[in-house]
Amino acid sequence: MQAAPPADRRRRRADLLTHIVLILGVLLFALPVWIVLMGSTHDGAAIGRGEVPLLPGAQGLDAYRRAWTEGAVGTTRVPVALMLWNSFVMAMLIALGKIAISLTSAYAVVFFRFPGRMLAFWAIFITLMLPVEVRIFPTFKVVSDLGMVNTYAGLIIPLIASATATLLFRQFFLTIPDEFVEAAKMDGAGPLRFFRDIVLPLSRTNMAALFVILFVYGWNQYLWPLLVTTSADVETIVIGIVKMIGTESNIDWSVVMATTVLALLPPIAVVVLMQRWFVQGLTDTEK
């Protein structure tokens, strides 16, 4: 047998090392999720005693059934089904709402000339510098003065303005050829028809990408729902889990683990299924 030339051998060794490091990287992210996934099929008391299982247990989906209908016994007892629904409504309406109002704002700024146009654009742009965390109590006061505490409206509307989405759509609208607009005008199509028949279909990819980013953003909110929701009816799943682990005694750990899995699934599904648009969109939006 002939020895491989040194360059070839070096390359093969580098490839092997690459695979090893990447697999370690993948495990670094998969392992914590694997632990809760396996733990959720075991007896909660055993986990509480510190027997961390790495293989499926005998309880099957029982913890999921209990979490779904009863929630965590000993804490808030909000059924996880309700939490999931609340998170879903919040994430959906934030994503769709942000996309809708950003589409129309960007359309107004790009396709019309009117007094105050630049002012409106800058007003939207400047909200980039006012994340909810820095104005949290005054914003809470406004929401409570408007009677929106513990409502979906209070949870969602204050988060719905979006400078990034508006900037992205504006950027994209500027690339729509003038000929399209002229042709539409010649056909006698007004601005609303042009918006519906030409602009919306052309924006589909951008909308899909933004949807992923904004759905995840909405689903993962923590500080704002923590302040605005005190009643179980509007509790989101991210808040619900942290409340479950907050008591430290008498926790049914398998229910907590099952709830964690349920909280992870929807946003991960959205990211993985729409990965192609998402990666493109994320790197476009933020630049």
Binding site: P32, I35, I239, V242
Partner: peptide, 13 residues
């Protein structure tokens, strides 16, 4: 897709 608060729960385990 993992929320910061959920990441914290995973690290608790």
């Amino acid at each position: 897709a993992i929320a910061p608060a959920i990441a914290a729960v995973l690290w608790l385990f």
